[in-house]
Design a protein around this nucleic acid. Sequence first.
DNA 1: TCTGCCTGATTAATCGTTTAAGCAGAATAT
DNA 2: ATATTCTGCTTAAACGATTAATCAGGCAGA
Lengths: 353, 353
Amino acid sequence: MAVVRHSPNMSAIAAALGVSAATVSNALSGKGRVSPELAEKIRTKAAELGYVPSLTARALRTGRSGVLGLVLPNIGNPLFPQIAQAIENAAADAGYGVLIADSRGNNNMQTLAIQRLMERQVDGIVVVPRFGTRIGDLGCPVAVIDSPSTPGNTVSSDHWQGGQLVADHLAGLGHRNFVLIGANPQSNVQNDRIGGMKSRLPKDARVEVVWIEKIEAVSGPGCPLGLMDKIERGFTAFAASNDLHALRAVTELQRAGIRIPDQASVVGFDDLAWSSVVSPAITTVRQDMAAIAEIAVNALLAVIDQENAEIPEAGGIAIAQHDRVPMTLVARQTSGRPAIFNSQGNTIKGEIR
Amino acid sequence: MAVVRHSPNMSAIAAALGVSAATVSNALSGKGRVSPELAEKIRTKAAELGYVPSLTARALRTGRSGVLGLVLPNIGNPLFPQIAQAIENAAADAGYGVLIADSRGNNNMQTLAIQRLMERQVDGIVVVPRFGTRIGDLGCPVAVIDSPSTPGNTVSSDHWQGGQLVADHLAGLGHRNFVLIGANPQSNVQNDRIGGMKSRLPKDARVEVVWIEKIEAVSGPGCPLGLMDKIERGFTAFAASNDLHALRAVTELQRAGIRIPDQASVVGFDDLAWSSVVSPAITTVRQDMAAIAEIAVNALLAVIDQENAEIPEAGGIAIAQHDRVPMTLVARQTSGRPAIFNSQGNTIKGEIR
DNA sequence: TCTGCCTGATTAATCGTTTAAGCAGAATAT
DNA sequence: ATATTCTGCTTAAACGATTAATCAGGCAGA
């Protein structure tokens, strides 16, 4: 008995039906002129033989691999799962595969990673750039996910609006003394979030900003952020640019005996994996990654199609008509009314709940 | 001026030098018979023209795509970044690309994800299986990363030994009352970790196991785990099968006013992103992902090579000669000697530090 | 000188698709 | 009745590499 050697190809189907391979191709793609009956016969025969098209051969012929590259500043980032999952799903829905590339935490590698992807002839690249880097003309369609305030951004969350959500939430609860926590002022995303927060704070609010990297540069990584000092000075609301920092704040305060949210409120961003299971569960602002990924992938595919139709030497940056997707606040347990005994310059009488 | 249309191919180099394409191929691959001088000329010309080989064409001809698939139970998992990064690095070092596939959290999708990868003719697949699923003959080389106690496992951390590390650490600090925290008893990884811990606990130790999913089935996701009850009953050591659960324990205890590590010690696994920055920083057991990834990828490549040399219809599961890589304990701030006032049935006098 | 071997190249087939071009017969138009 | 357009299919040429087979000389041995 002859064992099935490899998966059958178009010629096998053609031979089995006594037609030409071209006809099989046309029938399966629905492109050329094939009679409905024959087309049907071909399709059933293909299914019967378990035909699987060779994407490699198709790629060679058409010059399109059906694969998208994904470059992130740092695969180790806790936000990576969300992004990767969303992009993978959006790409899969569009019939594309996703090739990942790690820039291993440094800027040169980002370029190298992109090159490696292009050698594998990806049709386009989705990149979440490291801050401080500009994605230029890569000679390949690119979709950039960063922040609306980044030039060349394709689509991203409306981080500014997200910041406003946080400010409104906390101010609405009665807070007037805010500590804003960021990591690095160079990041557009963080700047937007913090800028958005500041833009909505009440006029009589007192605000201080803490930049983690500055503190760590002095006291070492993982060091305390000096939040108890803020508490003693009457601050009640801690708004971090990130759930990781929010978590850090929560544990630092909790460890010092502060009850959350009774004595202090903490809010983060991104709804990271642990945010809902710690005690108390963290109030956060969530990105609609599925929407972002879909918009990014679609914008990318649009550029790819257009490039394919016109000049092959385009390689531009994809631009979505709708470039900022709104964020949503998820109120959980780390935010509440400021306690009376802790509120200075507070106009409304908050209750301890 | 004619602009460079696309990246030049072998024929372009051949034409520029007045030789045949085959010679160029031989020169660049070093396979056929080419005079050293000509080979050198070809190489410099290739560099000069900026020649990039078409991996697609090569894949079509050789039947090998140079791409590995990576399938995980859930891309959203916080461990994903570590695994993905390690696999990507190991694969890149071996000249391979990595295509990711999300099984979107359910078992059927795992099979589908694998199929999608195979359609893209990956040369092999690295899979971290969902628990409860067996990876059978896929018709394609597979490396399984799960646990040494899983049949068909290629390589993984020695979770049992990791568990022993935890037990030794805590027992060495003087603890005698242990709460072991797991999520799901079906997971081989978690069972190994917990089994390893149990195997090294002192004979006079008191042990209780908490399964999170059981509790959540009753009280809902993210609910308290009832750890204060354990504290009141004299337990001082909380060993979780995972940093996520450890963090959950830390915050739950902290929130209730327990000082860590003075009144209770907590240990986790995996050294997840936040473990080093929360207060107190979490003592954990780290996996050597780089080693695991390298072993897995190498074992996979071995099967690929062998399959390529012999019968094309193999598709077996890769087996590494060294299938378990040791874990290392990272002692941080959540583990310490048990306080005297809390220690029941404790033989040594622990100090409050 | 003739045979045989080695060297350094070329030729041509192949991988599996896609697709432009061609072609025979039927249907329609003039 | 003849010219034209469809229709349904086939032919054959790509895509860019790899590789087995071939071939022309040069050189050594008999």
